[in-house]
C-alpha cells in the first residue's frame, strides 16, 4: 500500500471523530480505497468510513490488506502532523507495521513514524442498502448545536419528521425543549439550506450521548445527512470529497 493525502487534516479529523466510539479497528485496503467498519463496545452504534482511492494522489494497493490499528496509538502519531502536511501511508505485504510520513509543504521537514499493527478478528458487517422513510440534509453546525443544546437537558432526543418539517424534542428533570426546522432553501448559501425528503412520517428516539459524539465529525463537512426509518438504525452521514464518507449508525431507543 502507498497512499498519499494532500492534507493530513482529513485523516486527523476522521480519526478524532471516531476514536471515542471504537478503539481497535481494521483499515481494509484494496484498490478502491481504505475502508473501516466497527461497532462500538455497547453494540448499539456503528462507524463506517470509506476513503476512496480518488481521495489520495497517488494511491496504490497491489494486494488486499487489513491493517489492524489501535486508534489511540494512531492519534498519538497523527498529533505529530500539521493539518496542511502531506501525509503518506505505506505498508508492505503481510505487514508488522504501517509507516506514516508527514512532509511540510513549505519546508524540507520530513517526519516518519511506524505504528505496530495488531491482529484484529473483526466480523464482516453486511450493512444493507436501505430505502429510508425520511432523509434530512442540514448544516452540520446546526445539527451539532441541536444535539449539544438538548443534551444539556436530557439523555434522549425524539426526532419526528413529517411533511411540516423535522422536530427534535427532549424531556428532562429541569424541563423540556424542542427545536423545529422546516424545509428551507438559502439562495445565497446552499450549504445553509435544510432539505427534507419524506415518503412516510417517522418518529424515533435516540441517545444524545452518541449523537453528540458523532458531531465530532462536523469539521469534515458543511453538511450532514440524517436518514430515518421506523425500527431501523439512524444513519448520520458526513460526505467527504471524491465520494468518500464517514457514516455513523445508531439504534433507536424503544419503549416497552
Amino acid at each position: 500500500l502507498e497512499a498519499r493525502l494532500e492534507q493530513a487534516a482529513m485523516l486527523k479529523r476522521v480519526v478524532d471523530a471516531i476514536k471515542d466510539l471504537v478503539q481497535d479497528c481494521n483499515f481494509d485496503c484494496n484498490d478502491s480505497g481504505i475502508a473501516l467498519q466497527a461497532m462500538d463496545n455497547s453494540h448499539v452504534a456503528l462507524v463506517s468510513m470509506m476513503l476512496k482511492s480518488e481521495s489520495f494522489s497517488p494511491f496504490r494497493c497491489d494486494r488486499n490488506i487489513a491493517l489492524g490499528i489501535n486508534l489511540t496509538s494512531l492519534t498519538k502519531v497523527l498529533r505529530a502532523a500539521q493539518g496542511d502536511d502531506i501525509l503518506t501511508l505505506k505498508a508492505e505485504d503481510a505487514p508488522d507495521v504501517v509507516n506514516l510520513t508527514f512532509e511540510s509543504p513549505e519546508s524540507d521537514r520530513l517526519s516518519e513514524y511506524d505504528i505496530k499493527l495488531m491482529d484484529i478478528d473483526q466480523e464482516h458487517l453486511g450493512i444493507p442498502d436501505t430505502e429510508y422513510a425520511a432523509t434530512i440534509t442540514l448544516p452540520s453546525s446546526e445539527f451539532s448545536r441541536i444535539t449539544r443544546d438538548l443534551s444539556a437537558l436530557s439523555e434522549s432526543v425524539a426526532i419526528e419528521c413529517t411533511k411540516e418539517g423535522v422536530k427534535f424534542t427532549c424531556t428532562g428533570d429541569i424541563g423540556n425543549g424542542s427545536v423545529s426546522l422546516r424545509q428551507h432553501t438559502n439562495v445565497e448559501n446552499d450549504a445553509k439550506s435544510v432539505d427534507i425528503s419524506l415518503t412516510e412520517p417517522v418518529a424515533l428516539t435516540f441517545s444524545l450521548k452518541y449523537l453528540v459524539n458523532f458531531c465530532k465529525a462536523a469539521g469534515l463537512s458543511d453538511r450532514v445527512r440524517l436518514c430515518l426509518s421506523n425500527e431501523v438504525p439512524l444513519l448520520v452521514e458526513y460526505g467527504l470529497s471524491n465520494n468518500s464518507y464517514l457514516r455513523f449508525y445508531l439504534a433507536p431507543k424503544i419503549g416497552d
Binding site: L125, I127, P128, P233, A251, P252, I254
Partner: peptide, 14 residues
C-alpha cells in the same frame, strides 16, 4: 439496550 442491540442485529443480518 438489549432492544437496541437486537434492532442492530436484525438490520445487519437483513
Amino acid at each position: 439496550k438489549i432492544f437496541q442491540q437486537q434492532i442492530f442485529k436484525f438490520f445487519l443480518d437483513g
